[in-house]
Write a protein that binds this DNA or RNA. Structure first.
Length: 486
RNA sequence: CGGAACGUGGCGCAGCCUGGUAGCGCACUUGCAUGGGGUGCAAGGGGUCGGAGGUUCAAAUCCUCUCGUUCCGACCA
């Protein structure tokens, strides 16, 4: 027995092969899978439930900021793309194009686009709805009284990606895109800051992923934007993942798409616009930040069910009684607003347990004949493992569970935050940074802002596969954080 | 899109070099014993080897093309 390592539920481990571990966690946790459509994923119920929780929480946040939801078409007239020069640059090469409106069989019986049904004006499948929403806003905004106008839509978009990775980069993905318009610069600038803070709030306080808030360097700024703000998270392999961005477009976009209005002086002005988006990719971030070698570790506030209950059935005699007791526990939890689910399949107990471990259910509750008789239950925290196993009266549990879940959230967040902080190294010069990466540094490197002007920067970035992630707010724009990125 | 690798039952793999119609582990089904961090024994079901062509008496094994996946790179949420 030379194998001293305890068996892990996921093979390989994070240390052995991080990218493969990531794939295996998604599979083991039953969150998503590849589809017959190249580059597109099937989000399974357990993964989609996470997205629904993200949606629910963020949707409430933006409504508090007076954003209204609307829905725009999946198809966008191709000519819209050419209205915005920067867009052509950014998205044209990854657009799916709709050219026909009918299929028909040829002489061999093979289906194909009917030549007679060719579209005079082709459509593209939205890679973003910026142009069509902008076009709409241009019609809706006539007067300064129509501003601000804050629109958001939850939808799917498609970008024909060359290299896809489930959740992190797929050809089709789900997101929300917000597009706001304001009278002046102040309104737009403040808005894009506010939206970024909303993202930071969501990601940190619901997904337990600590982030660095900052501004993109000019080079990394979104095409056409005056300013791009970002939240950057660190994965357990030390790489960065941009979790959400918020752009201030100045009047650039309004001018190209015609969002103009009569201002308070009776003159014509162009609106100042912002756009902001967060996608299913953040689910990938959550996996890579919290997951461990036994699978997913769900942050409780977005977990499909923060409490999972396993009935322990030793024989059929007590089965119905135990199940009834479990059902009652679930009902009590739901009554206090906690999502709970019972696994009453007839799998073996250990298999049910490992199933919940791999899914990362924050609190596992075990209930057998013993608990039923005593009116107690046994609970274990996923983040702390079997050592955290404890028993208490069911009534006490109801009092404590919210606190336990909050504590799990804090523990996950703090653990990730400590990791991130320990893996940000400061370097005074570009040469110092290069030395760090050349000697195998895995995390971020923070340098003075002056490094951006170093003529050698491009070479160092290229050779070390790093990019400028952002200029963190915490240093008032006086520093830059670099790192490898997803 | 460039470089590399891979594609064999649900999952992970062996077989391919030295062609002769498929094997292992896990999962699954049944039974008995079990049952609080991956239970044991026994009996079973399931694949024609990503797809299309070619070579051959014969192909999972050789050749060509194609589709897909993964990793690295460039690009990007």
């Amino acid at each position: 027995m030379s194998n001293k390592k305890p068996r892990t539920a996921i093979t390989p481990t994070r240390e052995d092969d991080f990218p493969e571990w990531y794939q295996q966690v998604i599979k083991a946790a039953d969150m998503a899978e590849n589809s017959p459509v190249r580059g597109c994923m099937i989000i399974k119920p357990y993964g989609y439930a996470v997205w629904e929780n993200i949606q629910k929480n963020f949707d409430a946040m933006i409504k508090d900021l007076d954003v209204e939801n609307a829905y725009f078409p999946l198809l966008i007239p191709m000519e819209f793309m050419s209205r915005e020069a920067e867009h052509v640059d950014g998205f044209a090469k990854e657009c799916a194009v709709v050219t026909h409106h009918r299929l028909e069989a040829d002489e061999d019986g093979k289906l194909g686009p009917a030549p007679s049904a060719k579209l005079e004006d082709p459509y593209i499948i939205r890679p973003t709805s910026e142009t069509i929403i902008g076009d709409t806003m241009a019609r809706w905004v006539q007067s300064y009284r129509d501003l601000p106008l804050k629109l958001n839509q939850w939808c799917n978009v498609m970008r024909w990606e060359l290299r896809t990775r489930i959740f992190l980069r797929t050809s089709e993905f789900l997101w929300q895109e917000g597009h706001n318009a304001f009278e002046d610069e102040k309104g737009g600038v403040e808005d894009h800051e506010k939206m970024l803070e909303a993202y930071a709030d969501l990601v940190e306080n619901y997904m337990a992923v600590p982030v660095i808030r900052g501004k993109k360097t000019p080079e990394e700024t979104f095409p056409g934007a005056v300013s791009t703000l970002t939240i950057e998270a660190m994965m357990q392999d030390g790489k960065a993942l941009q979790s959400a961005t918020s752009h201030y477009m100045g009047q650039n976009f309004a001018k190209s798409i015609g969002i103009k209005y009569q201002n308070r002086d009776g003159d014509e002005s162009y609106a100042h616009t912002t756009s902001w988006g967060l996608s299913t990719r953040t689910i990938g971030a959550m996996i890579m930040v919290h997951g461990d070698d036994d699978g997913m570790v769900m942050p409780p506030r977005v977990a499909p069910y923060p409490v999972g209950i396993i009935p322990i059935l030793r024989d059929d005699q007590d089965k119905d009684k135990i199940l009834a007791y479990c059902a009652d526990i679930v009902a009590q939890l739901r009554a206090i607003g906690i999502r709970a689910k019972i696994n009453n399949s007839d799998s073996r107990t250990p298999d049910k347990m490992w199933g919940m471990i791999k899914k990362g259910v924050p609190v596992r509750v075990e209930i057998g004949a013993r608990e039923m008789q005593e009116g107690t239950l046994t609970h274990v925290r996923r983040d702390l493992g079997r050592d955290s196993k404890a028993s208490c009266k069911a009534s006490e549990f109801m009092q404590q569970i919210q606190g336990i879940l909050d504590d799990i959230h804090i523990t996950l967040y703090q653990r990730a935050k400590d990791f991130m902080e320990q893996n940000i190294t400061e370097a005074k010069t570009l040469a110092d940074m290069e030395d760090l990466y050349k000697s195998g540094h895995k995390g971020f490197v923070k340098t003075p802002i002056a490094v951006l002007d170093d003529a050698d920067l491009a070479r160092v970035k290229k050779e070390n596969a790093i990019t400028a992630r952002c200029m963190p707010f915490s240093d008032n724009g006086q520093s830059v954080i670099f790192g490898k990125a997803y």
